[in-house]
């Protein structure tokens, strides 16, 4: 286990150096990430500037939900961005090399890219949390802080698992573009807002089918011990394990039908 983690870090580190080879890229990516996330905040501000609450959720509570998404995406981008390479890797037969190295192929795939834009997410997300907790109306206890940390990590697990699951579609779709996964990713972004604003179909889909709501809405509700969503929010770690298992299983099934290429 320790060895596995060490190797994973090694592989990520190598990617960091590889990415920094193109220095201009690094700056363009980082700046554009800040721009993209910043615009999200401006937008949030614009909405709440006109109304005090949405479906009973006050501004700073929605900010907390939003921050959960930003942080989950940040962690997933920083540490498991490689999932997005699957479409190309699988459909151009580039998985071959990975399969011939003595390290689990799934971990090699996940560590095959570093998304520096995730740093922008983390900075912004932590800033949002810091701002939110000063305005949200409740008292902090060590237990609640521990719960918050656990739920943030679990929320990232949900995002990473679903990301992997949707990107594994590459094994079946045979397209070198990850547009399917990208469309599901935008679906997941619906979870930036309290899901009660959506119609029933969307709510069921985002809770039970592709449970993106567990990367933000439910865990945020659990931290705030707010409303009926709180109990579901406490299940986030289990949902995270489930999502990661789904992703790993999809990858395993995908590998067995991997056709390399140019046979």
């Amino acid at each position: 286990m320790r060895r596995t983690i060490r190797l994973y870090r090694r592989l990520l580190g190598a990617q960091v150096r590889a990415t920094l080879e193109y220095e201009a890229d690094f700056w363009i990516m980082s700046l554009s990430a800040v721009l993209v996330q910043g615009i999200g905040v401006v937008f949030l501000w614009a909405i709440f500037e006109s109304i005090p609450e949405i479906n009973g959720w006050r501004f700073w509570e929605v900010v907390l939900i939003y921050a959960f998404v930003v942080i989950s995406e940040g962690l997933s981008t920083l540490f498991t961005q490689g999932a997005w390479t699957l479409a190309v890797t699988v459909n151009f037969g580039q998985l071959d090399a990975l399969l011939m190295r003595p390290f689990p192929p799934l971990l090699q795939v996940l560590s095959s890219e570093v998304g520096f834009n995730g740093l922008g997410n983390l900075v912004l997300g932590i800033g949002l949390v810091a701002a939110a907790v000063r305005h949200v109306d409740f008292t902090w206890s060590p237990g609640r802080i521990a719960l918050g940390v656990i739920l943030v990590i679990a929320a990232a697990g949900v995002k990473i698992g679903l990301n992997l699951l949707t990107n594994c579609a590459a094994f079946w779709l045979r397209s070198p573009y990850s547009m399917f996964a990208f469309s599901m990713h935008t679906f997941g972004e619906l979870a930036r807002f309290p899901i009660t604003i959506y119609g029933l179909g969307v709510r069921i889909a985002i809770t039970a089918v592709l449970p993106y709501a567990f990367m933000s809405y439910f865990p945020a509700a659990a931290v705030l011990s707010d409303g009926t969503a709180r109990l579901l929010g406490l299940l986030t770690p289990l949902v995270a394990i489930y999502c990661l298992w789904l992703g790993a299983t999809a990858f395993r099934l995908g590998l067995s039908r991997y056709e390399s290429s140019g046979h």
């Binding site: 909405i47 006109s50 109304i51 949405i54 397209s175 547009m179 935008t186 930036r192 807002f193 604003i197």
Partner: peptide
Amino acid sequence: AYQTSFLFGMLASTFGALSMLYLWRSVLSA
């Protein structure tokens, strides 16, 4: 030739638009 990818791309922007619509419906109900 890339129709599937194009349609998934369209689906992605549809989700974006949907979330905005739902959000504003809820905001403007007041």
